[in-house]
Every structure is written in C-alpha cells, then in structure tokens.
C-alpha cells in the first residue's frame, strides 16, 4: 500500500489538514500517527456530513465501504474534495491492480504475465528477492506491517495462506531470520520463510514462486529443523525427494539395519544431528554438545560400530546423511 500512503502524505502536506482513509479494518492516516475516533458505524451514518470535525466521503462507487475523512469545519463537495477522492481512488486501484496482476501470474494466467511485465518495467521493481512467509494463514495483515517496517519492500501481498514479498535488500537470509524473530516477538506465533532467489525478470515470477512452494514442501517433508530456507541450498533435499521409492527403501535398509535401529538412542541422534548441522566440524559440534572432542570421536566410533558407517569418511558420510533424511521423511 505504499502508493496509497505516498498519495495520502502528498495530500495531507499540501492541504495542511488531517486525512484518513478507512478501508474496513485498515486505516491510513496523515499525519501517520494521527488517530481517528470515529467508528465504522458512525462513518456509515454520517456519510456526506461533517462529523466530529471531519467531512465524511465515500471513496468512490467502486469502493463503497472505503471512507475518506478530511479535516474541516463544514461539509462541502467542491473541486478540491473531488480531486482528493480521485487521487486516492487511483492509488487504491493501482495498488489493487498490481496485486491482482501478481496473483494472476502466480495462478499461471498468461495475460497477467504480459501485463505484469509492462507494469514492472514502469515501476522498476526488479531485481528483487522473492520471499514467502507461511504463518499458517494467521496474522497475515500484521506480518505485512512487520515486514514493511523491517526491510525494503518493493511489493507485498497475501496470496492464499502466504505472505509474498519482493525485497531489494541484500543479506537476505539474516534479514529473514530477523523477520521471523519479530513475528515471534510481536505476534507470538512462529512461521517458516522460503527465499526463492533473486528475481531478475518479471517472466520468472511464477518460477520463483514455485521454488518457494517447493522449499516449504521439502521442509515439511523432511521435517527440517530450521525455519528460514534458501531454495539455492535445498539441492540435497530435492535430490532426496526425487529418488524412486524402491531405491530409497534399499538405502534405508542398508544403513539402518535392525541392529543399528535398536542401538540408536537420544545421545546418538543428537550427536548425528549436531555433527551434520555443524558441517562435520568436530570442534564446533563438540562445543555445541558440550563434550570433549575426544568424546565426540568416541561417539562417532560407537555409531560406526553399530552401523558400519564412519561419518568421518566422506564416502560413508554422504550415504549415511542421505539415509538419515530418508528416515526422517518416513517417520510418522
């Protein structure tokens, strides 16, 4: 809604009056910290009148439930008021148009793809990272508020149960982790975030959106522990997902024998997870596990004795890790 806010600012500054746009639950204000003490019901009842120091207008016939409140002493519908309403209606139309276009592209509508290409050239939205935030459909509007105040947003919208945004910021993974922290702090709800990659051309929008969906699906499928994932780093899981079921089963049986499964306790599981999470670095993994490096070596030795796979050896380790994620995929 950046264009709406920008137009509102322009109008408010030029006229040196407070202006509010009330669209159902959402209120846009100039100045931005101004508060309006008129309820929706009161707006409906006082349409076309001056009420509590504001002239109440309906934005346009296209948006009958959207009200504009312009500071004033008595109601009038003069040229200036009409111009204000036209400008605000256009801003809202533009915002909704772009959102509708993007949603159409995401649904695979070819006509919308063409129009989005033209629109993007005009607005210079790209290059930008395409990001998807999944809060299971909860608090989407609040998430938009959080993201727009934290990173540089070129475009953001709610599509089905996700928040989709285009951001021009760098260090995007760290920023996404921060966004997640803010969502948890402010809304006390967790979320998953998928980064589709840097969108260079508008024609790639649908592709990168599908990348985000794929990333989310892989996270769920393999029960991955983190909450922010970059599509570019998901190749291992994409390969694991694509292996045919017979081969998967064979790999699983090979690595996770009955003997090994029986021996696999919480300590071994934590050791394996931490060892992989720390990229096979013995020192870092030992520190996180709060054990001596030698203790970690002893534990890896124990895993080797029970499984036959030496995780310090690359050719053993890669197959073990593949079997490990297949095992997690199967777990119910």
């Amino acid at each position: 809604m950046e264009s709406m806010k920008a137009v509102l600012q322009e109008i408010g500054r030029t006229m040196d009056k407070k202006v509010f746009v009330v669209a159902q639950e959402k209120v846009f204000a100039y100045p931005s910290d101004a508060e309006i003490s008129i309820s929706l019901t009161e707006l409906q009842e006082n349409l076309g009148k001056n009420y509590k120091g504001y002239n109440i207008y309906s934005l346009s016939s296209e948006y009958p439930d959207t009200y504009v409140c312009l500071e004033g002493e008595s109601f009038c519908r003069d040229t200036i008021a009409n111009l204000v309403l036209i400008m605000l209606a256009r801003a809202l139309q533009e915002h909704k148009s772009l959102h509708q276009l993007v949603k159409g592209v995401l649904k695979g509508n070819i006509e919308d793809e063409q129009r989005f290409m033209l629109e993007e050239k005009k607005r210079k939205l790209l290059p930008a990272y395409l990001i998807m935030i999944d809060t299971l459909g909860k608090y989407s509007e609040e998430v938009l508020e959080i993201t727009s105040n934290y990173i540089d947003i070129k475009l953001q919208l709610i599509n089905e149960d996700h928040v989709i945004l285009l951001s021009g910021d760098g260090a995007i993974e760290d920023l996404c982790k921060d966004i997640r922290t803010n969502i948890m702090t402010e809304l006390l709800t967790d979320c998953s975030i998928a980064i589709g990659g840097i969108l260079q051309h508008s024609a790639e929008l649908g592709i990168y959106y599908n990348r985000c969906l794929e990333t989310m699906a892989l996270k769920r499928r393999f029960k991955l522990p983190e909450n922010v994932y970059h599509y570019e780093k998901m190749d291992f899981y994409r390969i694991a997902a694509d292996i045919n079921p017979e081969l998967k089963e064979s790999i699983l049986q090979k690595v996770f024998s009955k003997k090994f499964e029986e021996a696999l306790d919480h300590e071994m599981v934590t050791t394996i997870e931490e060892y992989f999470k720390n990229n096979l670095n013995l020192t870092d993994a030992a520190a996180r596990l709060f054990v001596h490096r030698n203790t970690l070596l002893y534990r890896l030795e124990k895993i080797y004795r029970h499984s036959g796979y030496d995780l310090k050896n690359f050719s053993d380790c890669w197959l073990f890790q593949l079997a490990w994620v297949i095992r997690k995929e199967k777990a119910i």
């Binding site: 934290y150 982790k177 921060d178 966004i179 922290t181 803010n182 948890m184 702090t185 809304l187 006390l188 709800t189």
Partner: peptide, 15 residues
C-alpha cells in the same frame, strides 16, 4: 493460544 497466555518473549537476535 500464545497471545492469550500473558507472556512476552525475548530472543537472541532482537531485530
């Protein structure tokens, strides 16, 4: 739900 438990959280990266 979490928002109705009357709690507040502080995390490692305060953002």
């Amino acid at each position: 739900s979490a928002k109705d438990r009357d709690i507040a959280m502080v995390f490692q990266n305060y953002a």
